[in-house]
Design a protein around this nucleic acid. Structure first.
Lengths: 373, 373
DNA sequence: GCAAAAACCGTGTGCGTACACGCAAAAATA
DNA sequence: TATTTTTGCGTGTACGCACACGGTTTTTGC
């Protein structure tokens, strides 16, 4: 692409949908946009016929089909989204299948991103239908059936419970409706869309940050604070990635690792022995604040903590210098982009990249800015 | 906001443009969307009158104005963007006033974000008109006049040269056309829109990262590699923020600071004396790779380097562990969001937040992913 | 009190697409 | 050949909005 200055315009290539060259701007003033009506003229058929061809609605002679398609190809016809949707006058229903978010800050953010997108796209006919499930498999399974029954044009889905989700997805595929997953990805060979982080890599990064932060103090604790069932693969992939970092850097023997698992119910499950000689703690989910709180309450200092997600409590300890790093998953962006994907797919009928990895954002006290950033 | 599960919908509050509650989904099927025609009926006037009132085109009795406005308020009328733009059939011209980007990776990314947005919004009538300037004030001033003469609906602008930019902006304000600045912000009291980082804070963060990375090795070099004229305030703000970090943490005396300024023309301006006893180097612009290259060529190891921007050369040394941290400004996102702002303003006629700070993204080898991330 | 000017307002058409409807010609059946 | 069925295709209208045009009413000046 070559560039000259002054009031010029990059040429927009209608066929390939991008910019290729540069022309004087007034050349574009001439409205050379090709419409159905013009195609009809060129092909000596009526607009109705062109319409039928475009929508594969049949009832048109092959001769005309070929003629019109040739013209469409040649002139690079793109249907006018505005007029199209105006005429369609149709609502696109998206089923949103997520954990019930009361008291779950992370999922609250996801929803708020979803709603932001919804508010932005109502004008294009996007309508959301929510299906929430509690954090247990019974609730999840119950909702699965409702989602399967529900008639819609797209699905946004957080596959928290692995096995059930895989089964559900297999069943849902029969519908042949676009599906986006957020938070964690269980799609085989990229069959469905995904918006979220690369969990393995986020653990890997955590490993790097730990090894960076501690110099000659090399006792690392991996602290797993889980709910009843935390079968999410995210969790395991992060730990996997974490170890992999040290393996790749031939540091597995220079560091000492230990793992502890407790149930998520306050700090009363923790005790001082757990942290004896420990120099740094890796919490592979969003509950780093529990460790932080315990260490603070017991006045233990100098332990590096690294965790995930900008929950209020996590941020509190980040600001107090108790937690050193948080890796942000940008839940709001995930929710937004999930809906945005379906909008592009359904309304704009555009081709969209299937996988969108959210950057691994490292947050320290110094680059944490609430809300507006 | 309360939530129940199953096929429900969050209620969309048309007046305030967000979600407030939850209703059964089929309730929404009833098309209760208020249109100009319906308003006309309710007010006992013709659609034309309503139209005139909405567009403040005058020629309508005050009585009717009030009546119609009341109805608009009551029913929360929102004009249909699709129909509106379809009928308008207008092109929105945006002047894009940026440095010539040949051989400037950072600005190339900015443009590519701009073009991505342009490709996305052509269908809504967005058209870009480029004005490029070379990296000297003469070229800039020459282009200023062309931009001032040029008739358009919005301006995207990178104010590289501070004084000239301030003057230009003052002049441009007379046009009363929305302006977005990217990269650096010279807008007084938030008068114009801005997309970019908080430069001060990015320097502050760099300070933290340095103090984090070096333990008892506390000689810090601030390495300024500048072009002929590098009067950008960004540059100075970063250095300011950098020192501020140490000041705020009472570390100004624990660390030793030195500053060196060289012209940007390869490593031949550097010499070994510059790095004597130095433990870490802060490069407050995108040319950290010059320091990295010099240190590598001279086989000097163990010096921490922190810089800005994911230029190919920077990334190369990041991957070689010569550069430790890069703070990413996400130029592509800046360009995209700049145009996106004007799209929302011009096409959607929405109220948009004036300042959008790009997050201070810390990039290590382990969380650098080219392109798709 | 009348003409001219000004203020007010409704109608109609177009934007580009989608689709129902129905007519005509061709093909199939009697 | 007459009749039905199928296939092909054109017409017309709607989607919601913008705006030109021209008509009607009110105001102003003399």
């Amino acid at each position: 692409m070559y560039i000259k200055s002054d009031a010029k315009q990059l040429i927009f290539d209608k066929k390939n949908n991008n910019f290729t060259g540069l022309i004087e701007f007034f050349n574009l003033k001439t409205n050379d946009i090709i419409t159905i009506k013009k195609i009809a003229e060129l092909a000596n058929v009526s607009p109705g016929t062109v319409d039928r061809i475009i929508h594969n609605r049949g009832q048109v002679a092959q001769e005309n089909v070929d003629k019109v398609n040739a013209i469409i190809e040649e002139y690079g016809y793109k249907r006018n989204i505005l007029a199209s949707n105006l005429a369609l006058n149709k609502k696109f229903h998206i089923a949103v299948f997520l954990p019930k978010y009361e008291n779950l800050e992370y999922w609250k953010s996801q929803i708020s991103g979803v709603e932001k997108a919804a508010a932005e796209f109502v004008k294009f006919g996007i309508v959301l239908d929510y299906f929430f499930y509690d954090f247990n498999t019974e609730s999840f399974q119950k909702q699965i059936n409702k989602v399967l029954e529900f008639d819609c044009d797209g699905l946004l889905f957080a596959p928290i419970f692995y096995e059930d989700s895989v089964r559900f997805l297999k069943e849902y595929e029969k519908k042949n409706i676009p599906v986006v997953m957020i938070d964690s990805n269980i799609s085989e060979e990229n069959k469905h869309a995904y918006v979220g982080q690369n969990a393995f890599q986020s653990g890997y990064l955590a490993g790097r940050l730990i090894s960076f932060a501690v110099k000659n103090e090399r006792k690392v604790l991996i602290f797993k604070i889980a709910r009843e069932i935390e079968s999410t693969s995210v969790y395991l992939q992060r730990i996997d990635g974490f170890y992999s970092y040290f393996k790749d850097n031939n540091d597995l023997t220079n560091f000492t690792f230990s793992e502890i698992t407790v149930k998520d119910s306050g700090t009363n499950q923790l005790n001082l022995d757990m942290f004896k000689d420990i120099h740094s703690v890796f919490v592979p989910n969003s509950r780093a604040y529990i460790v932080a709180r315990f260490l603070e309450e017991n006045n233990i200092k100098g332990v590096r903590i690294i965790g995930f997600d900008l929950l209020k409590e996590n941020v509190e300890y980040l600001n107090k210098d108790v937690i050193d790093f948080l890796i942000n998953q940008r839940p709001e962006e995930q929710g937004y982009l999930g809906i945005n994907y379906l909008y592009k797919k359904l309304v704009l009928k555009e081709a969209v990249e299937n996988t969108h990895y959210i950057p691994l954002e490292i947050i320290l006290k110094e680059n944490y800015f609430p809300a507006g950033k």
